[in-house]
């Protein structure tokens, strides 16, 4: 079974993230890392591979040179190889452009299973998996909180807003997993050393046969008009409940604000 995992390199969420002048996420200003939600996708791939007779896991990422770090981290977790698409023309791509590039790579890879995270922690749109299913014509089995693979059948639990659904499809298919799915492993020292020898291929858009004009900021179908920092919420009144009066002042506040 060949499994491709899409991972994204994202700015660290604990740092202060900003926009550049062209309204794209400023990726140079803060350190990046493998999107934490994609660790669950890598982990699920490793588990499925290890249960299969012969399996391999290839990591795919689209992003700047530094994004190689996301592949490396995935290889350290135990993936077998990586494909990194890097090209100046990609800068500013929206989900439509990014999914176009990813779909090309995935077509070339011809995996039985494509696994994505539930959302990237910077954009957090959670739309790339559905777009990939659309572009590749693969069954979409997304937002899985539990995955069971039996031969070519994949059965997942999907916790929706109003109901829990059990969804079933057969490979090849596209899967995305939530953070309820598993507990991502922490790479061992041995695995970190072993990762250094694993192959990572770097591809440009022309290697993939993607027209540079079809991606990037100018090709986006949406346009950001403005990005303004909100004034930080000003901290309000804080009272210390020393003598048991805290509850009373809290209720007074709620009454005053007409919540009661």
């Amino acid at each position: 079974m060949k499994i491709a995992v899409c991972v994204k390199y994202v700015p660290d969420a604990s740092a202060r993230r900003t926009f550049s002048a062209d309204h794209t996420v400023d990726r140079a200003a803060v350190d990046g890392l493998l999107c934490e939600l994609d660790e669950y996708a890598v982990e699920e791939a490793l588990r499925i591979r290890d249960d299969a007779d012969d399996g391999q896991v290839v990591i795919v990422t689209v992003g700047p040179d530094a994004a190689r770090a996301a592949i490396l981290r995935s290889l350290q977790m135990g993936a077998d190889s990586g494909v990194h698409v890097a090209d100046q023309a990609i800068h500013g791509s929206d989900a439509v452009g990014t999914s176009l590039i990813l779909a090309k790579v995935l077509e070339q890879q011809g995996a039985d299973l494509v696994i994505c995270g539930m959302a990237s922690t910077d954009g957090s749109m959670g739309v790339i998996p559905a777009m990939l299913a659309e572009r590749l014509g693969l069954p979409q089995v997304t937002l899985a909180s539990e995955v069971v693979v039996k031969g070519s059948t994949v059965r997942v639990r999907r916790d929706g807003d109003v109901a829990t659904e059990v969804v079933e499809a057969t490979t090849p298919l596209l899967l995305s997993v939530t953070d309820q799915c598993n507990e991502p492993r922490y790479p061992s020292f041995k695995a970190i050393m072993a990762a250094k020898k694993k192959p990572v291929e770097t591809l440009s858009l022309s290697d993939l046969g993607v027209d540079a004009g079809a991606v990037g900021l100018d090709a986006a179908w949406t346009r950001v008009v403005s990005a303004e920092e909100r004034p930080p919420r000003s901290a309000g009144t804080v009272v210390v409940d020393e003598d048991g009066s805290g509850a009373g002042t809290l209720v007074d506040f709620l009454v005053h604000q007409k919540f009661i």
Binding site: P232, R233, A235, G236, T237, V238, V239, V240, D241, E242, G244, G246, A247, T249, L250, F253
Partner: peptide
């Protein structure tokens, strides 16, 4: 930092 109103203390008793 983002609360309009805060009470410092034990949540159960409050």
């Amino acid at each position: 930092e983002l609360a309009d109103f805060g009470v410092v203390g034990d949540l159960h008793s409050i």
